[in-house]
Amino acid sequence: MPVNHRLLLILLLLGIHTLATAQMSDFRLRSSAGPMASYSELKGDGLVLLDFWATWCLPCAEAIPGIVELHQEFGAKGLSVIGINVDGPRNAAKIRPFLRPFGVRYPILLDPDYTVMTDLRVEAMPTVVLIDAKTDKVLHIYAGYQPGLEARIKGDIERALRVR
């Protein structure tokens, strides 16, 4: 068996073996409003929903209205929503105008060098991450947008809130 085929097999087994280790670590980024902000300052003590998005991403625009609704419905019940924008400098002037029609009320942090994105190994746009703020354990990762995503996230939030 060629070297790389063996390496692929080892990595596949390693990947299956260690799926449950995801843990959120703190990060600090500039917000779209200007000041720096950190995850630990914004996460609250309930659940956190991170939404990785970009202005060039068609499915991201499909997901944002649902995220806004989840924020409206569960914000008072302990859900903190943080948008992580991964546009590069090319689209920096478009971020706030893009969001304006959606009525986004949650903080947007800017990750143009993909620091947080790389840390969470995010490769699909959008990717939504549900985290338990007390333990920082990653509960669910939703990679990509499919119709019905909002309902799945809502179900997972309700289950997580019931358990707490």
Binding site: A92, A93, K94, I95, R96, P97, F98, L99, R100, P101
Partner: peptide, 12 residues
């Protein structure tokens, strides 16, 4: 670059 809003309309 300049970005802002004209009422509900986002503009850059």
């Amino acid at each position: 670059g300049a970005d802002g809003a004209l009422g509900p309309v986002g503009v850059s």
